[in-house]
Amino acid sequence: MSIQHFRVALIPFFAAFCLPVFAHPETLVKVKDAEDQLGARVGYIELDLNSGKILESFRPEERFPMMSTFKVLLCGAVLSRVDAGQEQLGRRIHYSQNDLVEYSPVTEKHLTDGMTVRELCSAAITMSDNTAANLLLTTIGGPKELTAFLHNMGDHVTRLDRWEPELNEAIPNDERDTTMPAAMATTLRKLLTGELLTLASRQQLIDWMEADKVAGPLLRSALPAGWFIADKSGASERGSRGIIAALGPDGKPSRIVVIYTTGSQATMDERNRQIAEIGASLIKHW
């Protein structure tokens, strides 16, 4: 067993022997300050990975656009099909120029040879490739089937209704393509630590998230040396920005953090900075 597999395998073990964890309200002060700075709603939740206990939250049951954070859930659904023998990570999918949508930095380079399901999930999570996400959605039956998968997991909140890039419209009070911080955190925890996926698939999912290449300005920018993070960011219209992450010190994840914001007129750089500052406060008061 590799060191990485050993780390994931021990998560349920540590759950039975973990020391108590305590929240620090200073982080919530920073979350509220971020709302003021951005002139927008901010949703935040911090969940103990082992016990599932909510350590701190702000607007945990308000809806926010999922943006590209849905791609982790999508690849979780794909992996569940792999575990059930209904899909193969090595299966090659061919597509055409007509399938390409905006922001497809990986898939646009493989029009001649296609990409495997594994490569598409990697592109969707690590590079947030939109065409990769659409091709993967097709393999499971579309957005409604992803919503059904989540319902079967016990998540009756999170929903995907449209494809890339339309799902990023982020219209106020529109429940399409939205989640709540509490629902997303719970669902992510189930995918990473529960029995829904095999150990190999849980490890694959967290490996893809750990290799995320487009979330550098967010929580990763505040991460001390030696800390672990596996994450997925998202951005969409109407000043929306978000990130879902499993992180912790000593090279292993111990908490789930979900941050969403929407309705801001601030620049992308400012939205990134506010999320990074929330992360810095979280780490300082860990």
Score class of each variant (00 low, 15 high):
Ser2Asn: 08
Ser2Cys: 11
Pro12Arg: 04
Phe14Ile: 13
Ala15Pro: 08
Ala16Pro: 08
Phe17Leu: 10
Cys18Trp: 12
Leu19Gln: 15
Pro20His: 15
Pro25Leu: 09
Glu26Asp: 10
Val29Ala: 15
Lys32Val: 09
Asp33Ala: 14
Gly43Trp: 00
Tyr44Val: 03
Asp48Glu: 11
Ile54Asp: 02
Glu56Lys: 05
Glu61Asp: 12
Met66Gly: 02
Met67Ile: 04
Phe70Asn: 01
Leu74Gly: 00
Ala84Ile: 14
Gly85Cys: 08
Gln86His: 13
Gln86Thr: 09
Glu87Trp: 02
Gln88Ile: 12
Leu89Gly: 03
Gly90Arg: 10
Arg91Thr: 05
His94Glu: 10
Ser96Tyr: 12
Leu100Met: 14
Glu102Ser: 15
Ser104Gly: 02
Pro105Leu: 04
Asp113Ala: 10
Thr116Ala: 05
Ser122Arg: 13
Ala123Thr: 02
Ile125Thr: 02
Thr126Val: 09
Thr131Ser: 13
Leu135Thr: 05
Thr138Arg: 15
Thr139Gly: 09
Gly141Glu: 10
Lys144Leu: 14
Glu145Ser: 13
Glu145Asp: 08
Ala148Val: 13
Ala148Arg: 15
His156Asp: 14
Leu160Cys: 15
Asp161Gln: 02
Trp163Ser: 06
Pro165His: 03
Asn168Met: 03
Asn168Ala: 07
Glu169Lys: 10
Glu169Gly: 08
Pro172Ala: 10
Pro172Glu: 13
Asn173Arg: 11
Asp177Arg: 00
Thr178Gly: 01
Met180Ile: 11
Met180Val: 11
Ala183Thr: 08
Ala183Gln: 12
Thr186Ser: 14
Leu188Met: 08
Leu188Phe: 08
Thr193Cys: 14
Ser201Val: 09
Gln203Asn: 15
Gln203Val: 13
Gln204Leu: 13
Gln204Ser: 09
Gln204Thr: 14
Trp208Phe: 03
Lys213Met: 10
Val214Glu: 04
Val214Asn: 06
Pro217Ser: 09
Pro217Gln: 10
Leu218Glu: 02
Leu223Thr: 10
Pro224Arg: 01
Ala225Asn: 15
Ile229Cys: 05
Ala235Val: 03
Ser236Asn: 10
Gly239Ser: 05
Arg241Met: 05
Ala246Glu: 02
Gly248Trp: 05
Asp250Pro: 04
Gly251Asp: 07
Ser254Leu: 09
Ile259Tyr: 01
Thr262His: 08
Ser264Asn: 11
Ser264Ile: 03
Ala266Leu: 08
Thr267Gly: 12
Arg271Gly: 07
Ala276Ser: 10
Ile283Leu: 05
Lys284Asp: 05
His285Val: 03
